[in-house]
Protein backbone atom coordinates (compact mmCIF):
# COMPACT_ATOMS: atom_id res chain seq x y z
CA UNK A 1 0.00 0.00 0.00
CA UNK A 2 2.68 2.42 1.10
CA UNK A 3 4.81 1.50 -1.87
CA UNK A 4 1.96 1.83 -4.28
CA UNK A 5 1.30 5.36 -3.10
CA UNK A 6 4.91 6.32 -3.58
CA UNK A 7 4.82 4.90 -7.04
CA UNK A 8 1.83 7.04 -7.87
CA UNK A 9 3.52 10.15 -6.50
CA UNK A 10 6.30 9.44 -8.92
CA UNK A 11 4.44 8.17 -11.97
CA UNK A 12 1.36 10.36 -11.95
CA UNK A 13 3.08 13.64 -12.81
CA UNK A 14 4.99 11.99 -15.62
CA UNK A 15 1.96 10.60 -17.46
CA UNK A 16 -1.52 10.64 -16.04
CA UNK A 17 -1.34 14.00 -14.35
CA UNK A 18 1.45 15.65 -16.33
CA UNK A 19 1.93 19.28 -15.29
CA UNK A 20 2.19 20.50 -18.88
CA UNK A 21 -0.33 18.43 -20.80
CA UNK A 22 -2.95 17.86 -18.12
CA UNK A 23 -2.59 20.81 -15.78
CA UNK A 24 -1.41 23.12 -18.61
CA UNK A 25 1.24 24.72 -16.39
CA UNK A 26 4.64 26.04 -17.44
CA UNK A 27 3.57 26.48 -21.07
CA UNK A 28 5.37 29.81 -21.49
CA UNK A 29 8.86 28.43 -21.06
CA UNK A 30 7.91 25.27 -22.95
CA UNK A 31 7.37 27.44 -26.01
CA UNK A 32 10.53 29.43 -25.66
CA UNK A 33 13.26 26.88 -25.05
CA UNK A 34 12.23 24.04 -27.36
CA UNK A 35 13.83 25.17 -30.60
CA UNK A 36 16.89 23.06 -29.87
CA UNK A 37 17.07 19.79 -27.98
CA UNK A 38 20.13 20.90 -26.05
CA UNK A 39 18.55 23.95 -24.45
CA UNK A 40 15.38 21.96 -23.72
CA UNK A 41 17.38 19.34 -21.83
CA UNK A 42 19.28 21.94 -19.82
CA UNK A 43 16.04 23.74 -19.02
CA UNK A 44 14.40 20.45 -18.01
CA UNK A 45 17.30 19.58 -15.70
CA UNK A 46 17.36 23.09 -14.21
CA UNK A 47 13.65 23.01 -13.51
CA UNK A 48 13.80 19.50 -12.07
CA UNK A 49 16.60 20.61 -9.76
CA UNK A 50 14.68 23.69 -8.65
CA UNK A 51 11.35 21.91 -8.07
CA UNK A 52 12.93 18.96 -6.28
CA UNK A 53 15.08 20.98 -3.92
CA UNK A 54 12.61 23.75 -3.24
CA UNK A 55 10.10 21.02 -2.43
CA UNK A 56 12.54 19.46 0.04
CA UNK A 57 13.49 22.77 1.66
CA UNK A 58 9.92 23.96 1.99
CA UNK A 59 8.87 20.57 3.28
CA UNK A 60 11.63 20.67 5.92
CA UNK A 61 10.53 24.14 6.96
CA UNK A 62 6.81 23.48 6.64
CA UNK A 63 6.16 23.21 10.38
CA UNK A 64 7.94 26.51 11.07
CA UNK A 65 6.66 28.63 8.20
CA UNK A 66 4.18 31.24 9.41
CA UNK A 67 0.96 30.79 7.42
CA UNK A 68 0.56 34.45 6.67
CA UNK A 69 3.85 34.80 4.81
CA UNK A 70 4.14 31.29 3.41
CA UNK A 71 3.98 32.35 -0.24
CA UNK A 72 6.79 34.86 0.34
CA UNK A 73 8.90 32.23 2.08
CA UNK A 74 8.31 29.83 -0.80
CA UNK A 75 9.28 32.51 -3.29
CA UNK A 76 12.51 33.25 -1.43
CA UNK A 77 13.43 29.57 -1.49
CA UNK A 78 12.64 29.26 -5.20
CA UNK A 79 14.44 32.49 -6.11
CA UNK A 80 17.46 31.34 -4.13
CA UNK A 81 17.70 28.05 -6.00
CA UNK A 82 17.10 29.69 -9.37
CA UNK A 83 19.93 32.14 -8.82
CA UNK A 84 22.22 29.27 -7.86
CA UNK A 85 21.30 27.45 -11.08
CA UNK A 86 21.72 30.61 -13.15
CA UNK A 87 25.16 31.37 -11.69
CA UNK A 88 26.20 27.78 -12.13
CA UNK A 89 25.16 27.73 -15.80
CA UNK A 90 26.97 31.02 -16.40
CA UNK A 91 30.13 29.53 -14.98
CA UNK A 92 30.08 26.08 -16.54
CA UNK A 93 27.66 26.12 -19.49
CA UNK A 94 28.14 29.63 -20.80
CA UNK A 95 26.90 28.99 -24.34
CA UNK A 96 23.72 27.36 -23.15
CA UNK A 97 23.13 30.02 -20.53
CA UNK A 98 23.30 32.59 -23.32
CA UNK A 99 20.61 30.74 -25.26
CA UNK A 100 18.37 30.26 -22.25
CA UNK A 101 18.98 33.90 -21.22
CA UNK A 102 16.01 35.09 -19.22
CA UNK A 103 14.17 31.79 -19.12
CA UNK A 104 16.25 30.35 -16.30
CA UNK A 105 15.39 33.43 -14.25
CA UNK A 106 11.77 32.94 -15.16
CA UNK A 107 11.72 29.53 -13.48
CA UNK A 108 10.94 31.63 -10.40
CA UNK A 109 7.53 32.38 -11.83
CA UNK A 110 6.99 28.93 -13.34
CA UNK A 111 3.61 27.86 -12.08
CA UNK A 112 4.75 24.26 -11.66
CA UNK A 113 7.21 25.20 -8.93
CA UNK A 114 4.82 27.31 -6.88
CA UNK A 115 2.03 24.85 -7.51
CA UNK A 116 3.96 21.91 -6.12
CA UNK A 117 5.18 23.84 -3.11
CA UNK A 118 1.71 25.01 -2.17
CA UNK A 119 -0.13 21.80 -3.07
CA UNK A 120 2.35 19.18 -1.97
CA UNK A 121 5.44 20.22 -0.04
CA UNK A 122 3.52 22.27 2.55
CA UNK A 123 1.74 19.14 3.75
CA UNK A 124 4.06 16.21 3.03
CA UNK A 125 7.34 14.78 4.33
CA UNK A 126 10.67 15.81 2.74
CA UNK A 127 11.21 12.38 1.24
CA UNK A 128 7.86 12.31 -0.52
CA UNK A 129 8.27 15.94 -1.53
CA UNK A 130 11.58 15.10 -3.16
CA UNK A 131 9.94 12.33 -5.19
CA UNK A 132 7.06 14.62 -6.11
CA UNK A 133 9.44 17.40 -7.18
CA UNK A 134 11.60 15.09 -9.27
CA UNK A 135 8.57 13.57 -10.91
CA UNK A 136 7.00 16.89 -11.81
CA UNK A 137 10.28 18.21 -13.15
CA UNK A 138 10.71 15.08 -15.25
CA UNK A 139 7.11 15.26 -16.43
CA UNK A 140 7.71 18.80 -17.60
CA UNK A 141 11.08 17.87 -19.07
CA UNK A 142 9.61 14.89 -20.90
CA UNK A 143 7.18 17.10 -22.81
CA UNK A 144 9.88 19.70 -23.45
CA UNK A 145 12.21 17.09 -24.90
CA UNK A 146 9.53 15.53 -27.11
CA UNK A 147 8.55 18.94 -28.47
CA UNK A 148 12.17 20.02 -28.93
CA UNK A 149 13.03 16.76 -30.70
CA UNK A 150 10.44 17.35 -33.41
CA UNK A 151 11.05 21.09 -33.67
CA UNK A 152 14.78 20.67 -34.09
CA UNK A 153 14.43 17.74 -36.49
CA UNK A 154 11.88 19.40 -38.75
CA UNK A 155 12.99 23.00 -38.23
CA UNK A 156 16.75 22.69 -38.48
CA UNK A 157 17.29 19.15 -39.74
CA UNK A 158 19.54 18.42 -36.78
CA UNK A 159 19.37 16.58 -33.48
CA UNK A 160 21.53 17.76 -30.62
CA UNK A 161 23.22 19.99 -33.23
CA UNK A 162 24.21 16.98 -35.36
CA UNK A 163 22.97 16.99 -38.93
CA UNK A 164 20.61 14.04 -39.33
CA UNK A 165 18.72 15.00 -42.46
CA UNK A 166 21.14 13.94 -45.21
CA UNK A 167 22.35 16.44 -47.77
CA UNK A 168 20.79 14.30 -50.52
CA UNK A 169 17.33 15.26 -49.21
CA UNK A 170 18.13 18.96 -49.57
CA UNK A 171 19.50 18.36 -53.03
CA UNK A 172 16.21 16.67 -53.92
CA UNK A 173 14.32 19.79 -52.88
CA UNK A 174 13.56 19.11 -49.21
CA UNK A 175 13.52 22.23 -47.09
CA UNK A 176 13.66 22.84 -43.35
CA UNK A 177 10.32 24.02 -42.07
CA UNK A 178 10.89 27.59 -40.88
CA UNK A 179 7.58 27.61 -39.04
CA UNK A 180 8.93 24.94 -36.68
CA UNK A 181 11.46 27.40 -35.30
CA UNK A 182 8.82 29.98 -34.48
CA UNK A 183 7.06 29.93 -31.07
CA UNK A 184 3.54 29.25 -32.48
CA UNK A 185 4.66 25.83 -33.67
CA UNK A 186 5.60 24.89 -30.10
CA UNK A 187 2.08 25.71 -29.05
CA UNK A 188 0.69 23.53 -31.82
CA UNK A 189 3.09 20.72 -30.92
CA UNK A 190 2.10 20.88 -27.25
CA UNK A 191 -1.53 20.92 -28.37
CA UNK A 192 -1.05 17.76 -30.40
CA UNK A 193 0.56 16.00 -27.44
CA UNK A 194 -2.31 17.09 -25.18
CA UNK A 195 -4.75 15.77 -27.76
CA UNK A 196 -3.03 12.40 -28.07
CA UNK A 197 -2.79 12.00 -24.33
CA UNK A 198 -6.38 12.96 -23.61
CA UNK A 199 -7.73 10.71 -26.33
CA UNK A 200 -5.66 7.83 -25.01
CA UNK A 201 -6.70 8.39 -21.42
CA UNK A 202 -10.34 8.71 -22.28
CA UNK A 203 -10.30 5.45 -24.13
CA UNK A 204 -8.64 3.78 -21.16
CA UNK A 205 -11.16 5.15 -18.71
CA UNK A 206 -14.11 4.21 -20.85
CA UNK A 207 -12.70 0.72 -21.25
CA UNK A 208 -12.76 0.17 -17.48
Amino acid sequence: MQNKRKERIFLDPIFRNNPVTVQILGICSALAVTVKLQSAVVMALSLTFVVAFSNVIVSLLRKTIPGRIRIIVQLVVVAFLVIVVDQFLKAYFFDISKQLSVFVGLIITNCIVMGRLEAFAMSNSPKRSLIDGLANGLGYGFILIVVAFFRELLGSGTIWNYQVVPQAFYDAGYMNNGLMIMPPMALIAVGIIVWIQRAHQQRKEEGK
Binding site: I72, F80, I83, Q87
Partner: peptide, 17 residues
Amino acid sequence: YSVILVVVVAGVLSLVA
Protein backbone atom coordinates in the same frame (compact mmCIF):
# COMPACT_ATOMS: atom_id res chain seq x y z
CA TYR B 1 11.55 34.28 10.87
CA SER B 2 11.82 36.47 7.78
CA VAL B 3 14.99 38.17 9.00
CA ILE B 4 16.75 34.85 9.63
CA LEU B 5 15.56 33.45 6.30
CA VAL B 6 16.75 36.44 4.32
CA VAL B 7 20.12 36.62 6.06
CA VAL B 8 20.81 32.93 5.54
CA VAL B 9 19.79 33.03 1.89
CA ALA B 10 21.80 36.20 1.22
CA GLY B 11 24.85 34.67 2.89
CA VAL B 12 24.76 31.48 0.87
CA LEU B 13 24.13 33.37 -2.38
CA SER B 14 27.07 35.69 -1.81
CA LEU B 15 29.26 32.70 -1.18
CA VAL B 16 28.12 31.07 -4.43
CA ALA B 17 28.62 34.30 -6.37
